[in-house]
């Protein structure tokens, strides 16, 4: 029997329906796998809002207390004590039971005499005064350019910190986490976050040294040492990044080590002839003022430092450090 014209063969209908089902299924698989692949390839990190943020560790100073003090001499502990006394003593910043995180500059595996790292005498003095003020633990860390173990060894920072009752934390890969920075250049980056989980106070211990790109490496540049992978790429925007870091890290206190001054060929130095004795420490809570003072210690004009102008414009402090009226104490 011949089918009527226009009539549909049931077998053919079944085959077409089966065909359409297969096409739809294959299309769904194709779209699904393609979409999943694209999602995996183009997956972006979580939005900045979902990332950890660094809390402020700043303390409020009562009215009338200077925001900066300078001490000159040859004994690091006596200088630090004298400078801090002008701000009310270490007890104003560190209380019993605090876990204090100290951040010296230990960027390179260089001996102290080359001036590329914070003086061990200053690190030791800072640890000792924190312990004296009742700190339960004093953690000392940095993320060096050179091998961390060698850097803390050769700079003698490890020895000085431990001799005074501090604990050196050598950074491990798992100590870094991406955090929200929300800066003008840095939106987010890997950061040496683990020590901040236990710290209740943060003290910067930068050394005063020349820097090939930013003019000087002082209090604000010191926070670079908390950044993780590939931080050298920021050298092309170093001024803005330093200002970003200044906005990110609100320390309890900063101790600027000017006992040795790397006057040229920074940040590494390389010759004892590049270093001169500074016999100076400055302490304070205004990082911009401390950096402006540090520029002058290095014989440079802070007004010529773009990162300081950026930091000041962002309200991080004043370049006119003299306007703070810092006591300038001689300790003999």
């Amino acid at each position: 029997m011949t089918p009527r014209p226009g009539a549909t063969d049931p077998g053919q209908t079944e085959a077409r329906r089966d065909f359409l089902k297969r096409v739809a299924a294959a299309g769904a698989i194709l779209a699904g796998s393609g979409g999943a692949a694209l999602w995996l390839r183009g997956r972006r990190p979580a939005p900045a809002g979902a990332l950890a943020r660094l809390p402020s560790f700043a303390v409020d100073l009562p009215p009338g207390v200077p925001r900066m003090a300078i001490a000159r001499g040859t004994d690091a502990r006596a200088m630090l004590r004298a400078a801090l006394d002008a701000l009310g003593g270490m007890g104003r910043f560190v209380q019993r039971g605090d876990v204090v995180l100290l951040k010296p500059n230990v960027a390179f595996d260089r001996p102290p005499a080359l001036g590329a790292t914070t003086s061990p005498e200053v690190v030791g003095a800072a640890v000792a005064l924190c312990r004296e003020a009742g700190a339960a633990r004093v953690l000392v860390t940095d993320n060096p350019i050179s091998n961390p173990e060698g850097s803390f060894l050769k700079s003698r920072v490890r020895r000085a910190a431990e001799a005074s009752g501090g604990e050196v934390l050598l950074p491990r890969a798992r100590d870094f986490r991406e955090i929200a920075i929300d800066g003008t250049v840095l939106a987010r980056w890997e950061f040496l976050l683990e020590p901040f989980r236990t710290a209740t106070k943060v003290i910067g211990l930068p050394t005063a040294k020349d820097h090939n790109l930013s003019g000087a490496s002082l209090a604000l540049k010191n926070w670079y040492g908390f950044l993780g992978r590939g931080r050298n790429r920021f050298h092309q925007a170093i001024d803005a990044v330093i200002a970003d870091l200044g906005a990110l890290v609100a320390p309890t206190l900063v101790v600027l080590d000017g006992t040795r001054l790397l006057m040229r060929n920074g940040p590494t130095g390389g010759s004892p002839a590049d270093v001169k004795p500074g016999h100076t420490l400055a302490v304070g809570v205004d990082q911009v003022a401390l950096d402006a003072f540090g520029f002058e210690l290095l014989g440079k004009d802070p007004a010529a430092a773009p990162y300081l102008a950026l930091a000041e414009a962002r309200g991080l402090g004043t370049r006119d450090w003299r306007s703070l009226g810092p006591p300038d104490i001689r300790t003999g």
């Binding site: 390179f108 350019i145 050298h235 170093i238 940040p267 590494t268």
Partner: peptide
């Protein structure tokens, strides 16, 4: 940069 960091551009 891994050896001398910011001194490299010079």
């Amino acid at each position: 940069y891994e050896k001398i960091d910011g001194a490299a551009p010079a």
